[in-house]
Nucleic acid binder design. Structure first.
Length: 414
RNA sequence: CGGGGUGUAGUUCAUCGGUAGAACGCUGCGUUUGGGACGCAGAUGUAGCAGGUUCAAUUCCUGUCACCCCGACCA
């Protein structure tokens, strides 16, 4: 993509209302645009990042045999009445039609997925199975905040599993837990697994995946020596206490919840009276699990974790482009055509490249733009580079001159 | 929803009872080109909205809306 054609260019300053890092940088760098509190448009650069995260999550969900579907956001009132959510869940957005029918906007999809799946499951032979989607969720939060970390509308992967027994569910939970940790690792994040309360709808314990960041809204106690971690909401210990698992010392920190898993038990099968025949030929309700992962929130958390005073520093796995190609001295025909040539060659090699081809823009401004946008590799072509490419990584200070061939080799390694 | 803050040009802000200004951005021309260049010329506003006070309101008062922050909330 040519930067000169990009309609969402960087801003000189972040908007004054932005205070959190992700809000400031994502807006200033042209990744998102705020429509209202907690609701954002994802612009070309931002959508590319969102898609990258989504694809990493999709591959892992497919790997644990999740079957991807796309379910409706607009829900009839009746399914929410069936489960008791209509009157109890205050974050449920409710809307009226012009014929005065009432609807809800999906804040979670158990009410849709349970009848969808169970109407097709007859016997234990059809279980276990797991269904997921990646879609928008709506929650009527009293206060949206922190940029894209807490929106009223957000992009989320939600998976639901159906099991014959609690044992089978627990086994699958462990599988998904490992899968989640793999996802966060691929995203460049270190997630801690906490025990937390399951909220009013589940009496069972749920597990939350937490990434330490001051922009987060959860307080967690964690052990620096082992992977013990607990949400202070349910913690029976405090900072400085010995870790119940290894005896180490507990620290407290702010964290953002980037995923969770719930043991739903048999609630939804029972609510909808949807059962299957078990091994003894008796009617049985499925044990269900629910696995959420906030894609848009993860994008915000990544920005909170990876930035410096100049801008964002995207991990390579989610960066909108691999290379930020800067053409300097573009008023000189030979330099310009050389940069164009390299741009085309990189594209031919299948490498995602953002080409800053602007002519009447100073070198300083182009460098500042590149630092703000945060693409991993910056390549400069100018009259000083004399046929070579000047390569600099966003998170390093040093530059290196190399041929296109060597650059391709370098990229192949990373 | 309670508390606090902010609404003026595209953006960041100034002006503060007498009819609106800077910087950046934008347009044109020229000079520039290795860290957000320079010169000249130009365009851009119902001062969030609605009332009220006043000879006169962007400015004071009331209400309202929006955004940000703290809290509550976040199956």
């Amino acid at each position: 993509m040519k930067y000169s054609k990009l309609f969402s260019k960087t801003l000189r300053q972040p908007p004054k209302e932005a205070e959190t890092i992700n809000h400031k940088l994502l807006t200033q760098a042209g990744f998102v645009d705020q429509l209202m509190a907690g609701v954002y448009s994802y612009l070309p650069l931002g959508l590319r990042v969102l898609n990258k995260i989504e694809q990493i999550v999709r591959e892992e969900m497919d790997a644990v045999e999740g079957q991807e579907v796309l379910m409706p956001i607009l829900h009839p009132k009746s399914i929410w009445e069936t489960t008791g959510g209509w009157g109890k869940i205050d974050v449920l957005f409710k809307i009226n039609s012009r014929t005065e029918k009432e609807y809800a906007l999906g804040q979670s999809e158990e009410e849709v997925v349970t009848p969808l799946v169970m109407s097709r499951v007859n016997t234990y032979k059809d279980l276990p199975l797991s269904v997921y989607q990646i879609h928008w969720k709506f929650r009527d939060e009293l206060r949206a905040k922190s940029g894209i970390l807490r929106g009223r509308e957000f992009y989320m992967k939600d998976m639901y599993s159906f099991h014959e027994t609690q044992e089978d569910f627990l086994k699958y939970y462990e599988t998904v837990k490992k899968s989640y940790l793999k996802i966060y690792e691929k995203l460049g994040l270190t997630a801690k697994v906490t025990e937390a309360s399951g909220g009013s709808f589940s009496e069972k314990i749920s597990y939350e995946f937490m990434v330490l960041t001051d922009a987060g809204e959860d307080d967690i106690l964690y052990c620096s020596d082992c992977d013990f971690c607990v949400n202070v909401e349910i913690a029976k210990m405090k900072v400085g206490d010995p870790c119940p698992r290894c005896g180490g010392k507990l620290d407290q920190a702010k964290a953002s919840e980037v995923g969770n898993v719930f043991d739903l038990g048999q609630k939804y099968g029972k609510d909808f009276n949807l059962s299957f025949l078990d091994r003894e030929g008796k009617k049985s309700f499925p044990i269900m699990g629910c696995y959420g992962l906030g894609i848009s929130r993860v994008m915000g958390v990544i920005v909170e974790k990876f930035n410096d005073e100049k801008g964002i520093i995207w991990p390579e796995s989610v960066a909108p482009f691999k290379i930020h190609l800067i053409g300097l001295d573009q008023s000189e025909e030979n330099i310009k055509s050389e940069a164009e040539k390299v741009y085309k060659q990189l594209q031919t090699e299948g490498i995602e490249v953002l080409f800053d081809d602007r002519v009447d823009v100073s070198a300083g401004e182009k460098f500042a733009t590149a630092d703000l946008v945060g693409i991993p590799y910056r390549i400069v072509i100018s009259k000083k580079t004399e046929g070579k490419l000047e390569v600099k990584k966003r998170n390093e200070k040093t530059t290196e001159f190399m041929s296109l061939e060597d650059l391709l080799k370098l990229l192949a390694k990373s």
